[in-house]
Design a protein around this nucleic acid. Sequence first.
DNA 1: GAAACCATTTAACAAATGATAAAAACGACA
DNA 2: TGTCGTTTTTATCATTTGTTAAATGGTTTC
Lengths: 187, 187
Amino acid sequence: MEINQIIDNIYPLTKSSKSLIKESIVEVKFPKGHILFKANKIETSFYFIKKGIARAYAFSDENQITFWFGQEGDPIVSMQSYVNNQKGYEDVELLEDCDLYELKTEKLHELFLEDIEIANWGRKFSELELIKSEKRLIALQFNTATERYLALLENYPSIIQRVQLSYIASYLGITQVSLSRIRANIK
Amino acid sequence: MEINQIIDNIYPLTKSSKSLIKESIVEVKFPKGHILFKANKIETSFYFIKKGIARAYAFSDENQITFWFGQEGDPIVSMQSYVNNQKGYEDVELLEDCDLYELKTEKLHELFLEDIEIANWGRKFSELELIKSEKRLIALQFNTATERYLALLENYPSIIQRVQLSYIASYLGITQVSLSRIRANIK
DNA sequence: GAAACCATTTAACAAATGATAAAAACGACA
DNA sequence: TGTCGTTTTTATCATTTGTTAAATGGTTTC
């Protein structure tokens, strides 16, 4: 997805404000398997996915738990670093060769203080992410594993085609074996 | 908690910007049991809790599921209404007699467009809520029911003392009977 | 204090999910 | 094509959680 559309989908900006953001964005490419963010590190960049797919995971004891997927148009951000300038708890791994738009967090924060439109764009960005997060929270609390799987299938069919099932099981909060059983029962 | 502290905890403002917000806030009182927000309604206000405690719940089939508690200093907001001007899916019930600070959403949105400091205050507000939401999401996905109960006990001891266990069980994503078993095993 | 009404705990059984291991399916590649 | 390595499915048993119902404990009201 192109950067203009990504920016506009969040909050429409005048030409001049939009240029200010776009001036501080560079396009970068990384191969499949690249670890974009490392846990326990303060991340200084913020990305949008132009092309490709990624996941965020953290460790519980020894096993990885995937808790986020991103695809074309989605932001990749370590909220702890972005908001509080603190170490994050997640790794972000690219699951395909990716084209990304990179923005330095520090630069963005300067723009927030200088340009009221960009401040409101940043406000809207977090508001929209918050709504996504709330919806997922409620799905986890309200729905059974089977329902959550069906919802993923309906809302993000490409994730299931492009990502291995062990990550999806983890994302759904169940084991891979359990997901396999669920898939067998649906057919 | 006093309004000055609540505002400052989110993002420090200059005197003039702070007055702008405070001018549009009124203090209101409601009794225990009052339904502050109704599901399937566009809410036009936004609150902070000065004194008291509240919960948000939604219906899944016939049974209520509690998915949020708020106490002194916390905001009460229907994100769907606040962000998208759409109907919310939750009721908010006051669990004690409450003193609240009320802010009209529309007024706040006007201020966002007029005052860059307030826009950044609003940005920070959603960022902080987003971090809370992410932490809860990860707790739901990573931790067992017993661990989640112990975490609630440690982080929000007053909730457990002030709220009936059926609501807490629902919040933890388990049945009341299951919570009772967990409590019995801990002792 | 007794009665009525809740909230909480306990008990018994059913259903869902986890853990472990083995089998099957799939892909990469010489 | 055949082999190797990885992913996914299937099978078995253990554990957790859900469901339903009854028992216990507390509070309010008359």
